[in-house]
Design a protein around this nucleic acid. Structure first.
Length: 325
DNA sequence: ACTATTTCCTGGATGC
DNA sequence: TGCATCCAGGAAATAG
């Protein structure tokens, strides 16, 4: 499950490997499309754009796109349908292979309603961005055109280098979107950048469990279930503690713990649980550093007390009842 | 205005 | 072996 360290790892890798490449054409799957922007809008922003850089904002991956106003990708690039032969293609829904963004039913409808044309013009002249949220099981993979297209591939970007950037997401919690004029904005503070006093204020007067507050992306962006539990353990705070009841000194420890955990995890390439791998298929190794997450019933590494697991806001939360108060 | 719960989604694990 | 059921969880939507 990609949280801040995993997303940071992926974004760094993509920034190294994909920056400078040009997106020649885009294929998007259909149906409960994992899209926040329409397929047509995404295709129009991406096609013909150069990847200026890739970075992380919270749990989002942001591709900064640059566009040469003169060299517009010709229509033919969009209408051709270069689907590589793939293993297991008969199991894929037939509609998927035929879906060129421009001809999707929903997209055509929007075109008929107008408004797209002006959007198109805006995309041509301004800097735009491609925003990817990986959700639970989303992956961005950089691969050769001959590589097998995995089941649950929802987007394929053909790059000028001959490679393909693919978005694969079995559980479909991931989301793709684009921005045109405005830069992508995310709520909340970056946990690795926020200062102590701002961090402290976030929890003032909140009657919600501190675990929930840490997961609230409008407060801090990027902390997910694993790193919330790990941070709370290191800070000695029980996940159910009401945010408002936590002392300044404890908040200071939490502040430091959050940064420490995230930094250590980034250094190890994130935690590979279930199926997380970065853009090159590399696994992280921070999962071996987990002190409480996924260790219910196992002895606390500090005091040997069996670790507890409770459910808070629908998420399993792991802690040591002796070390955390 | 807040907080809590439900919903989305599929693969893998579990149980009978 | 096979089939049903449960579980994982980010964030938006809905309910309280």
């Amino acid at each position: 499950m990609p949280e801040l360290p995993e997303v940071e790892t992926i974004a760094r890798r993509l920034d190294q490997c994909a920056t400078g490449d040009v997106i020649e054409s885009v294929w998007l799957g259909t149906k409960p499309e994992p899209l926040k922007s329409s397929a047509l809008e995404i295709a129009r922003v991406l096609e013909g754009s150069r990847i200026g850089g890739v970075r992380r904002v919270g749990k989002h991956i942001v591709f900064d796109l640059e566009r040469n106003p003169v060299a517009r990708t010709p229509r033919s690039a969009r209408s051709r349908k270069p689907r590589p032969a793939r293993a297991g293609s008969k199991t894929r829904p037939a509609q998927a292979s035929a879906t060129t963004p421009g001809v999707a039913g929903k997209a055509s409808l929007e075109l008929a309603e107008g408004g797209i044309r002006s959007a198109h013009a805006a995309a041509r002249q301004s800097k735009s961005q491609w925003i990817v949220h990986l959700g639970m099981t989303g992956r961005l993979q950089l691969c050769g055109p001959g590589d097998e297209v995995l089941k649950h591939t929802h987007a394929i970007l053909q790059l000028a280098s001959g490679r393909e950037l693919r978005f694969v997401d079995p559980r479909r919690f991931g989301r793709l979107s684009v921005t045109r004029d405005a830069a992508f904005e995310a709520a909340g503070f970056e946990p690795l950048e926020v200062e102590l006093d701002r961090f402290t204020v976030l929890f003032h007067g909140r009657n919600t469990p501190i675990k929930s507050a840490l997961l609230n992306q409008k407060l801090l962006r990027g902390v997910g279930n694993i790193y919330a539990d790990e941070s709370l353990f290191r800070a000695g705070i029980r996940p159910r503690r009401r945010a408002a009841s936590i002392t300044q000194e404890q908040l200071r420890r939490l502040f430091l713990s959050v940064k420490e955990v995230l930094q250590e995890a980034i250094a190890l390439g994130g935690s590979s649980i279930s199926d997380y791998v970065d853009a090159d298929g590399e696994e992280g190794s921070f999962q071996f550093q987990h002190r409480v997450y996924g260790r219910e019933g196992e002895p606390c590494l500090v005091c040997k007390t069996p670790l507890k697991r409770v459910v808070i806001a629908g998420r399993s939360s792991h802690y040591c009842r002796k070390c955390q108060k």
